[in-house]
Amino acid sequence: MLDFFKFLGKEQNKSKDVAKERLKLVLIHDRANISPKFLDMVKGDIIKVISNYMEIDESGFDIRLSRIEHEDDNYTSALIANIPIKRMKNIGKNNG
């Protein structure tokens, strides 16, 4: 019975699929000539700028390069950031 479940589980976690997913991700960085360190620098700068206007949750800050698949099967890279806001600061608001 155990073997049976093992068999089922294996179907969902083939090593070639792991290889493919890892390659896709690493190639996004390779092709854009961007290293994780570079991404950290971008993240640091974004935090600096945004913090002037709002208080953000730095621990929840998520930034990554991704790729967008178009209808013609081509891909383009995209920088995707998810930045949780704790509170808006009072500057820049239209106080009438």
């Binding site: 294996k10 179907e11 083939k14 090593s15 070639k16 699929d17 290889a19 493919k20 190639l27």
Partner: peptide, 12 residues
């Protein structure tokens, strides 16, 4: 399923 097939490689 332990080696990428031709389609996988071409796709990448």
């Amino acid at each position: 399923g332990d080696m990428m097939n031709i389609e996988d490689t071409i796709d990448i």
